[in-house]
Nucleic acid binder design. Sequence first.
DNA 1: CGAAAGGTTTGATCTGGATCAAATCGCGGC
DNA 2: GCCGCGATTTGATCCAGATCAAACCTTTCG
Lengths: 239, 239
Amino acid sequence: MDVAHSEVFHAGTPVACSSCQARHGVVCGALSDHQLKELGRHSLRRKVDAGAEIIAQGAETSFYSNIMRGVVKLCKVMPDGRQQIVGLQFAPDFVGRPFVRESTLSAEAATDAEICVFPRNLLDRMIAETPELQRSLHDQALNELDAAREWMLTLGRRTAEEKVASLLHLIATHAEPQTAISADFDLPLSRAEIADFLGLTIETVSRQMTRLRKRGVILIESSRHIVVPDMNELEKISA
Amino acid sequence: MDVAHSEVFHAGTPVACSSCQARHGVVCGALSDHQLKELGRHSLRRKVDAGAEIIAQGAETSFYSNIMRGVVKLCKVMPDGRQQIVGLQFAPDFVGRPFVRESTLSAEAATDAEICVFPRNLLDRMIAETPELQRSLHDQALNELDAAREWMLTLGRRTAEEKVASLLHLIATHAEPQTAISADFDLPLSRAEIADFLGLTIETVSRQMTRLRKRGVILIESSRHIVVPDMNELEKISA
DNA sequence: CGAAAGGTTTGATCTGGATCAAATCGCGGC
DNA sequence: GCCGCGATTTGATCCAGATCAAACCTTTCG
């Protein structure tokens, strides 16, 4: 049993599905009442601090989870320490890799987060028994694949300025409270994490952010809080 | 009806599944005899020349296909013409994007290829009716997602030399005839396509290839034919 | 409050890969 | 066999983003 797993089953609280954020999410939205009850009996809600690892790269995964609150980053690290963030997940996404025992990436809480953890074996059985659940997870996988490929275009072909604008656009789009044209949100990532998502250095990220600020495209209320007066402008810059 | 679609149904030949390369592939391997027969009745085998488009970016997709022979590249292009290859697919992979009407990328034959084309509606129905098929496509989607994320690491964090070595390793690994340590294969991509896969320019690709040749890591028998005497060496360089 | 420690910004300089330019190769057509 | 044309290689130069270095904020904690 890996460390994270044992932590989970000491730190969790019992699950109440009825008022849950993820009740109609990818996993739970596809289950019958009976299945939901069974899954609930074996699930625990758990708080994870920003920076805490949920799944370690290379580790065997004995559980899956749903994100209830917060942002989770998916990372790959090379033996020499170079690092790339390969995805961000938001509530109520499902976190895990069905059909494969060993994770090829790590999942870490980017912000303080809450997750609902359940045993891998149980969900695997439910996937096999429930076409609707398989379909729902298949759908999430395909959406993540589209997002990954879109990001490959960003990594391979966009300039530093376009990359930073793309990231701000991505996050603004996933942060809830926004009007049609303006947005106002907290960055779930530090400058170092942004650099690791964009394939840049922190210095370049910082410089591009101040350039966008000086041009009036964004306001930096604090290093973690951004206001975008005109999302169309931002989108135009991200090309 | 889009152009590619109408072409398909004029250029194809009837399908004989029994001797098919993809009989046990992602789609057909998951079907009952009866379903296979039905799918076969509505499928056509089609030859596509290198460079021909199978699905256009932004187009509505009215069909899916299986790759029987050859290599297919998945591309994204930006309005200003910048281009990124976001995936390579080999026989007997499935090509298509279930659950979504409009393709966010284009699929083009990288080499002369043969594909087996079938109507979208029919396969969508079979997916809904056949958990085993859903599972099989889900599995392919997750494998493609893993590959996409691995490539994000390459695009974001590897040097030009490591990128080229990674590409050669990827292709060598998917080309069949190889001993344990050496490999000998045709490149399915031009220098320009390699550049678009790696987020580099053709000049840089060319220079890195000659560097690898001068170091004895590869032999360039012709611009499209490569020999790798020691795959471990190549893998080490790709980091 | 003041000191220590991260995280972030800003500045100066360097460099890997891009860009611009020109051979050279390879191949199909005549 | 020779010509023409696209693909590839090679060379010279440039520049976007990396690296090295040094402030400058925040937050925390004694």
